[in-house]
Amino acid sequence: MATYSAEYLKRLLAAVRRFEEVFGRWMETQEESDHVQSRGLFPTVRNKDGQDRATIRRLELDVAEAAGAAARAVTITGAQIAVAGVGVLDPIENWSLMSAPKALFTPQEVRTTAARVRGRLSTMISEAEAAAESATPGFAPSELHEVIWTAAAAHWTTHQYRVAVREASEALTVHWKERLGRNDVDDTVFWQQSLSPGEPERGRPKLAWPGDPTDKTNRSMRGGMEPLAKALNSLATGLNLTVRNVATHTRDELSEQEGMERLAAYSYFARLLDQCEIRRAEEAEST
């Protein structure tokens, strides 16, 4: 079964409503009957006495144009009518047959078809919107890195997004300071020293991306391991300058979207750090 976007179905719905509008104006110029009154031999509409023919012709063109735009909706919704001896027809597309001898449709059948199409389109639009919403990947803050979300959760749930970001950024620094035993330096200096190139010094362990830094065949990043390791240092600096410092030294509140983006950036950084090796000058081997 074909599926249609909610926007496309809404355009069809608008086309059907336009048809109903112009059809109603045209019917104001017509005498209306049904199959019983016409005895199945005559038209089910005819011009009212005293109506201006030029006006009627103009209205008929409007109806024809609107019917052309709305006819697709009848097919999509399956609202055609079975006519004995003829087959399945679309009353909207064939509205003009009401003016012919042995008319196949009555005005009420055209109106009923349009109403049925509107109802089915409305249901299809709701279903399409629900399907689109369920197909969109959801964002669950609780699935962020444990260190990030644990620090942010209490503030996030009370809609204090700036504070949540600030606490998460500081928690990550505290987490790694404790793991490396580096409570002797400020935060910025800590990241600069811990992620800088070169060998660790006594009392200054470093976080290093695993692998041979001279390996040019590693596919983690073009150029090998060395630029990837340097990128971690730049990432830490960039996040501290653009996220942590702003969240700490200003009182401008963040929107939920802005908060999510900043927490996600720190969560990704935290996961990268988890993959790093801790290298200490005192140890013979990396841990």
Rank of each mutant, 00 (worst) to 15 (best):
A2Q: 12
Y4R: 08
S5W: 04
S5T: 15
L9A: 08
L9V: 07
L9M: 07
L9G: 11
K10H: 09
V16K: 05
E20M: 02
V22M: 06
G24C: 03
G24H: 04
M27N: 14
E28R: 13
T29F: 10
T29E: 08
E31P: 00
S33Q: 01
S33Y: 09
R39I: 13
L41G: 05
K48A: 08
K48V: 05
D49W: 02
D52W: 07
A54Y: 10
A54G: 09
T55V: 15
R58D: 14
L59H: 11
E65L: 10
A66S: 01
A67T: 06
A73P: 06
A73R: 03
A79E: 14
Q80K: 08
I81V: 15
A82W: 03
V83D: 01
A84P: 01
G85Y: 09
V88A: 09
L89S: 04
D90T: 03
P91W: 07
I92R: 07
A100Q: 15
L104V: 13
P107Q: 00
Q108D: 15
R111A: 12
T112E: 12
T112F: 06
V117G: 00
R118L: 09
G119Y: 02
R120T: 12
A128E: 10
A128W: 09
A130S: 13
A131S: 09
A132S: 05
E133H: 08
T136P: 03
T136G: 00
P141N: 04
E143K: 15
H145N: 15
H145W: 00
E146K: 08
I148Q: 00
W149T: 00
A153V: 09
H155S: 15
W156N: 07
T158N: 14
V163S: 08
A164Q: 04
V165L: 02
E170I: 11
E170S: 11
A171P: 01
A171V: 07
L172D: 05
H175K: 03
W176I: 00
R179D: 05
L180P: 11
G181M: 09
R182M: 08
D186M: 04
T188N: 12
Q192G: 08
L195T: 13
L195Q: 06
E199M: 07
E201A: 14
R202F: 10
G203L: 06
G203W: 01
K206M: 06
K206T: 05
L207K: 02
A208W: 04
P210A: 09
P213T: 06
K216Q: 14
K216M: 08
T217R: 12
S220K: 13
R222S: 14
G224S: 07
P227F: 03
L228G: 03
K230G: 08
A231R: 12
N240T: 11
N240F: 13
T242F: 08
V243R: 06
N245S: 11
N245A: 06
A247D: 02
T250L: 05
R251Q: 13
S255M: 04
E256D: 11
Q257W: 07
M260L: 15
A264W: 03
Y266N: 05
Y268I: 14
Q275G: 15
Q275D: 10
R279E: 14
A281H: 13
E282T: 10
E283D: 13
